[in-house]
């Protein structure tokens, strides 16, 4: 089990920006949620993919954002017990009557 659990992204080590100005990377960063949510036009998507192909740091960043969103989406939330649900109902109905 332990060998499955390693620091993400594992074997791929980010390298410094190669031929990319930081300004380009910031421009990409601004659009990554829209990119993940599939809200961008084909032209902009192609532009982003071209940048990602050349810029390992931005690709790693995108992966880390994707994982972050997935963790949020799948974070389970505790449910109310039947006892708590009934108690809460009594309080709400009582509060509504005396309102």
């Amino acid at each position: 089990m332990a060998n499955r659990v390693r620091t993400y992204p594992g074997t791929r080590k980010p390298t410094p920006h190669q031929g990319h100005g930081k300004r380009n990377c910031v421009k990409i960063l601004e659009r990554l949620s829209a990119y993940l949510d599939d809200e961008l036009s084909g032209d902009i998507c192609r532009e982003i993919r071209a940048h990602l192909g050349d810029c390992p740091n931005c690709e790693v960043f995108l992966d880390s954002l994707r994982h972050t969103v997935q963790l949020c989406q799948h974070r389970p939330s505790p449910s109310l017990s039947a006892k708590d649900r009934a108690a809460l109902r009594r309080q709400i109905l009582k509060g509504a009557v005396s309102a």
Binding site: R4, V5, R6, T7, Y8, P9, G10, P14, P16, K22, C25, V26, L29, N57, V60, F61, D63, S64, H67, T68, Q70, L71, Q73, H74
Partner: peptide, 21 residues
């Protein structure tokens, strides 16, 4: 939120190969 060092690009959490669940 712009990373300033190499280590800030990746998530430093052990989730490689695991589903979110």
């Amino acid at each position: 939120f712009v990373p300033t060092s190499e280590g800030e690009f990746a998530l430093q959490i052990p989730i490689e190969g695991l589903s979110p669940q």
